[in-house]
């Protein structure tokens, strides 16, 4: 039972990357045994698209096809925000079930467990974006720009997701159990995503609310994605989105890491 393995002083960056991918793999394999999760980031956004397009679309925008054009980019952004919650929930499960301790007792890169979760999250995000665009296409949504616009939009959304994940990490590290993460997440995310221009144009709202909606990064990002997918101004909302993302990361990444260190 004894094999004499050479004891090495540190993990190389390449190994760290492989460990990150292994942890990401594991996060994705989990979905197989917990298909509800797949539903959460697949059927739920599709429901939103169908619901808003066919139930509210006509009333809000005059026609369902016009509304789909307006709302789909925003729904993609909203869905991205909700999907980031899985980072926090998964992390919290690992912390409360002791899996995080097991990982920390292994000779792997210190950053791999978190990086693996976030990498898996980005894959889920990419899947959701593709799914929503596919469903949108079937319902009549067409790109007004081109493949470059689509690529830049995807990168922008993923970048924002990366930043927003850190808020989720903080909630995941702070909350006592995964259910609390979910409750906290939904309570915070509904106002953030609905008090925005995702579903309704800002100029239809009362003045005081307009100010809030305009400042909301979700609105900025939705505007940028609209510009990139259907055409329109891009530079300013994209810049604001990137600044927001950097700001969020600058605040929440160190805070999360600090809390994580305290907790374990």
């Amino acid at each position: 039972m004894t094999t004499v393995n050479e004891v090495r002083p540190r993990v190389g960056p390449w190994e760290g990357l492989q460990q990150t991918l292994t942890i990401a793999w594991r996060t994705l394999v989990q979905i197989r045994h917990n298909p509800f999760e797949l539903g959460d980031f697949s059927f739920q956004p599709i429901m939103f698209v169908l619901l808003f397009t066919y139930v509210f679309g006509g009333a809000i925008e005059g026609s369902t096809s016009g509304y789909l054009r307006f709302a789909l980019p925003g729904i993609i952004v909203m869905n991205m925000i909700f999907v980031t919650m899985y980072v926090g929930m998964g992390l919290n499960t690992d912390l409360t079930k002791g899996v995080f301790d097991r990982l920390r007792s292994l000779p792997i890169a210190r950053w791999a467990p978190l990086a693996g979760r976030i990498a898996a999250d980005l894959l889920k995000q990419a899947w959701s974006i593709a799914l929503l665009l596919g469903v949108g296409y079937l319902l009549g949504f067409r790109l007004g720009t081109g493949i470059v616009g689509l690529a830049v939009a995807t990168v922008l959304i993923l970048f924002f997701a990366l930043a927003f994940s850190w808020i989720s990490v903080l909630v995941g590290v702070t909350a006592r159990d995964p259910e609390k993460v979910q409750i906290l997440g939904y309570t915070a995310l509904f106002p953030i995503t609905f008090v925005s221009n995702v579903f309704v144009r800002t100029d239809t709202m009362p003045g005081w609310l307009q100010a809030v909606v305009k400042a909301n990064p979700v609105s900025q990002l939705s505007d940028a994605v609209r510009g990139l997918l259907i055409g329109g101004p891009v530079a300013q909302p994209a810049l604001y989105s990137i600044l927001w993302a950097i700001g969020i990361m600058a605040v929440f990444a160190p805070l999360s890491l600090y809390r994580l260190k305290k907790r374990v």
Binding site: N5, V7, R8, P9, R10, V11, R26, V29, Q30, H33, N34, D94, K97, G98, V99, D101, R102, S105, L106, P107
Partner: peptide, 20 residues
């Protein structure tokens, strides 16, 4: 890091991934 290469840990509460 060296220590972690020598040890195995079975904690007080089973730390298995229930979804795997």
């Amino acid at each position: 890091h060296q220590v972690r290469q020598l040890i195995g840990l079975t904690g007080q509460f089973a730390s298995v991934d229930e979804n795997l």
